[in-house]
Computed example of a mutant assay.
Amino acid sequence: MAKLLYSVSMSLDGFIAGPKGDMSWLTGHLGPNPEIDALIGDIGALLVGNRTFGGDDPHRGDAEKEGKAFGGGWDGPQFVLTHNPPAEPVPGVTFVSDLDSAVAQAKAAAGERYVNVLGADVARQCLDAGVLDEILTIIVPVLLGDGVRLFDRPGGDNVRLERIHLGEVPHATNLWLRVVR
């Protein structure tokens, strides 16, 4: 059965996007990451938040990578959690209005591979619902000072995590964790 993995790049002060979802901060920090390159082949489907789906792109201006998952390194079924689907269908994208259905559809599409969660709010919803299995945070050596937090859960409960792997590349540190249930 597929596992839900939240993979995300984060500044050292805990932000995954700048103010209003600005992802331009990440552009100067993108570089080779063999662990991420290996992970891409293990992803069977994406579960994406609507703001992430229609939001800012660190590859903006790069015609070959802009608007493509993992800068064009991955292709497959995407499930976007939203209450406001677009009027026109988007090839390869299924718009789903509730978390349970989105998770079930994404897991079915992924088979034995990962469902990769993209978007802070969807990741928080998955964590709160007890369906998030793993978190891979690529910690980038920069301080943003403001923006979208990795997990913003005021009043939330304590969630125990167990380290699976810690890896380093010249421009980042990969911290892979399992959600302990």
Rank of each mutant, 00 (worst) to 15 (best):
G92Q: 10
P89E: 14
A106M: 15
L99Q: 14
P89T: 08
P89V: 01
R60P: 08
G61K: 12
V159W: 06
A123G: 13
G130D: 13
P85I: 07
L150A: 09
A109K: 03
G147T: 07
K65D: 00
K65M: 01
Q125E: 14
D75N: 11
R60N: 05
I135E: 12
A110F: 11
D100G: 14
D146W: 05
A63V: 08
V115P: 13
A63W: 11
D75Q: 04
G92T: 03
G55Q: 12
F95L: 13
L132K: 02
G119K: 02
I139D: 02
R149I: 01
P77G: 02
E64K: 07
P77W: 00
I138M: 05
A87E: 14
G147Y: 05
Q125G: 14
E88W: 00
G55N: 11
D56W: 07
R124Q: 15
W74R: 00
L161V: 02
D62C: 03
S97G: 06
D98Y: 11
E64T: 10
T82P: 13
N158H: 06
G72K: 02
P91W: 09
D100W: 11
C126N: 09
V96M: 15
V140G: 12
G130L: 14
R153N: 06
G156V: 01
L127V: 14
V117H: 13
Q125K: 14
P58M: 02
R149M: 04
L161H: 09
E64L: 03
G71Y: 13
F79K: 03
Y114M: 11
N116H: 03
I135T: 06
V142C: 13
F70E: 01
T82K: 05
A109H: 15
K68V: 00
P85W: 11
P58L: 07
I139T: 13
A109Q: 10
D57S: 04
G72R: 01
E64P: 04
E64W: 04
V93F: 08
L132F: 04
K107H: 12
L127R: 08
E162T: 06
E64G: 09
C126I: 06
A120I: 05
V90L: 09
G72N: 02
A87T: 08
D75V: 10
S97Q: 06
G55D: 06
V90R: 11
E64H: 07
V131Y: 05
D121W: 14
P154S: 11
Q125T: 10
R113A: 11
A63H: 13
K68I: 01
L99S: 15
R163S: 02
V115S: 13
P86N: 13
V103A: 04
R163W: 08
A102C: 10
A120Q: 09
D121M: 15
C126W: 09
L118V: 07
G145H: 12
I135V: 11
W74Q: 00
A87G: 08
D75P: 03
P85C: 04
V93W: 07
D133I: 05
I139L: 07
T137N: 09
D62N: 10
G92S: 05
Q105F: 01
L144W: 09
G61T: 10
L118C: 12
L118K: 03
A102S: 10
E162A: 09
A87N: 04
A69D: 00
D152P: 00
P91V: 03
D62P: 01
L161C: 00
D146P: 01
D57R: 00
L127F: 02
V117I: 14
